[in-house]
Design a protein around this nucleic acid. Structure first.
Length: 572
RNA sequence: CGGGAUGUGGCGCAGCUUGGUAGCGCACCUGGUUUGGGACCAGGGGGUCGCCGGUUCAAAUCCGGCCAUCCCGACCA
């Protein structure tokens, strides 16, 4: 292709609205344009990268036996009602009413539709199956941001494994795990696979694939001593033990006027109310049920852990009035001692603790000498607290590190929730009907693109890996009006084209500086520079985008030189 | 949804305090000179000043409402 004929609208300035590097560069280099918050048009260069990413995903899915489908994006409400997710998904699902007055939704994921198709599987002999598609998803994100990193409309490769039992699911899960590692490696992404929360998907286990980046929105915990790694939402750590007295008397009240925070109480009563000696009592409404959430005074709740521990769908902190109605006191004087009739969820760090201090459920009064197991009717023990950097690894003596990552993929063991809802059953050897055991696996295509840019750029622009670059090579003619240079450049161009290299000829009537700057901004992996002086000497220059080192190559060898380099790069 | 900010040719911005003629840089068009790191000269085209309403002889500018976008917190590929 000739650059002079293409639509590559590069900009000299960063768009004012962009913050994330990938957002700035993809807009500036002419890959994308925003239509609305969270909706981006893919320009020709963007579309080329997008389809290359999708192609790599497709190849690796096919390699593990995946069969590609294409499902509707618009779904009748009925299937979502059957799975129960019509209500669960809340405002995140785009909903619309058609001319008949029927409710519809734009698909945010496709478990329901695939499970429905799986009702045409009848025998265990039909399993296993891996089904997938690469398709547009719609999610009414409360806050789209950072260009392609978080949007409301995006392309997802979503696959679904169908197995007769948990063992089969485990195998399909592992195969996807391997395929995902290969995909991200081919995309040039260094991913870390971490334990993760399953969130609204449900199921028994999930792994996320994270790319380390300051633009990421997830916190990842890794150990410096072993291979422990986890999303913060799932992470645990070993805590230093706190020495408590062997026995403590019955709890007793003491006045604490105007002491409404952990810190204030600790300062006023340092010997009995150090933060790690207090019980923090939070009040939550979990599916409209008032629930007390107990943590050690110096710990912070991680809400997703509470959701995972309770299976709640609608989870929110209680309003002050609701708290007073439930406990008879205001925040700052709350506690769980003697409370009956309310669900109590407590963090493991409180287990076995004695001599604790907590609110007395009377304003301005606290209780001391609390023995958690003796005095509090805990219904559920769970890991609820937020792990902090520097704490000890749960599996070894190492220290935990905390960093931000971009979630580029997520795989879930779903189980039978959707197959049961859709009545997707198969008969086993004995003739008994069993629900198909499902897994679900997702990769965000455009987010993957953005993650590559986040991870691979310099001050001049994008540095694409060969495997996903919109074109592999740009041939830059320094003087298109010089016949010798122009002819030599066209020869290189057609030689590369004939050799199957994706090449673009920068034949624009621009000065060299403009062409170099654009080539580097756009990020072609290789540049062949052809100018009158070089041509007179029978040479061109080859510049690798990563590192920008330049070598002089005889014109007669340029095609071979590039073909070798590009072929090495294509494998990822 | 809570908090903060912004909306002026395609992009980046000034003008608004103190109402009256909409301006600069880049990009674009024409001609010329230039040509190995975002050239120069001359001429030129393009703007409902986010939208609606109000105040006023007169509104980009003042007032009210709405909308949109971005950033920070609660959600996710």
């Amino acid at each position: 292709m000739y650059w002079s004929e293409l639509f590559i609208p590069t900009l000299r300035d960063d768009p004012a609205e962009a913050e994330a590097v990938s957002h700035k560069l993809l807009v500036r280099a002419g890959y994308i344009r925003q239509l609305a918050a969270g909706h981006y048009s893919m320009l020709p260069l963007g579309q080329r990268v997008r389809s290359k990413v999708a192609r790599i995903i497709e190849e690796e899915m096919d390699r593990i036996g995946g069969q590609r489908f294409h499902l509707p994006a618009l779904h009748p409400a009925e299937i979502w009602k059957r799975s129960g997710r019509w209500d669960v998904m809340g405002d995140e699902m785009f909903r619309l009413v058609d001319r008949k007055g029927a409710d519809n939704a734009l698909g945010m994921t496709h478990e329901e539709v695939f499970a429905l198709l799986a009702t045409e599987l009848f025998s265990y002999k039909d399993l296993p199956q891996i089904w997938y598609q690469i398709q547009t998803k719609f999610r009414d994100e409360p806050r789209p941001k950072s260009g392609l990193l978080r949007v409301r409309e995006f392309t997802m490769k979503d696959s679904y494994s169908l197995d007769v039992d948990e063992t089969g699911l485990g195998e399909a899960f592992d195969r996807h795990h391997g395929a995902y590692l290969r995909i991200f490696s081919r995309l040039g992404l260094h991913v870390v696979d971490v334990e993760a929360s399953s969130g609204a998907m449900g199921g028994s286990g999930s792994i996320e694939f994270m790319v380390r980046s300051g633009a990421g929105e997830d916190w990842i915990v890794t150990c410096d001593g072993c291979d422990y790694r986890s999303n913060l939402e799932k992470a645990t750590s070993k805590l230093a033990t706190v020495e408590d007295a062997d026995t403590v008397p019955e709890p007793s009240r003491f006045g604490t006027p105007d002491l409404h925070t952990i810190k204030a109480l600790a300062e006023a009563f340092p010997d009995i109310a150090a933060p790690d000696r207090q019980i923090k009592t939070l009040v939550y409404l979990i599916d409209d049920e008032v629930t007390l959430v107990l943590l050690r005074g110096d710990h912070d709740l991680l809400e997703q852990k509470l959701i995972d521990a309770t299976g709640g769908i609608k989870v929110r902190p209680a309003q002050p009035e609701e708290i007073v109605a439930a406990l008879g006191a205001h925040p700052g004087s709350l506690g769980a001692v003697g409370v009956t009739g309310l669900r109590i969820v407590a963090d493991h760090a409180l287990s076995g603790r004695r001599g604790m201090t907590t609110g007395a459920n009377t304003d301005d009064w606290h209780l001391r000498d609390v023995d958690v197991e003796r005095d509090v009717a805990v219904d559920t023990w769970a890991s609820l607290r937020t792990v902090r950097a520097g704490e000890s690894c749960p599996n070894c003596d190492g220290q935990l590190d905390l960093w931000k990552g971009i979630e580029v993929g997520h795989i879930f063991k779903l189980g039978t929730r959707y197959s049961e809802a859709m009545n997707a059953l198969v008969q086993d050897e004995s003739g008994a009907s069993l629900p198909i055991v499902m897994g679900s696996y997702g990769i965000g295509v455009e987010r993957g693109m953005a993650a590559i840019v986040e991870a691979s750029h310099d001050e001049r622009g994008i540095v694409w890996p060969v495997a996903v670059a919109p074109y592999e090579v740009v041939v830059t003619v320094l003087r298109p009006d010089d016949e010798a240079a122009s002819t030599a450049a066209r020869d290189v161009y057609s030689g590369l084209t004939d050799a199957g290299v994706e090449v673009i000829l920068d034949d624009r009537a621009e000065r060299p500086g403009v062409k170099f700057a654009d080539a580097e901004l756009v990020g072609f992996p290789y540049r062949v520079t052809v100018g009158p002086k070089g041509v007179a000497n029978g040479v061109a220059e080859v510049t690798r985008r990563a590192g920008l080192e330049t070598v002089e190559v005889a014109l007669s060898d340029v095609v071979d030189h590039i073909v070798t380099a590009v072929e090495r790069g294509r494998g990822g």
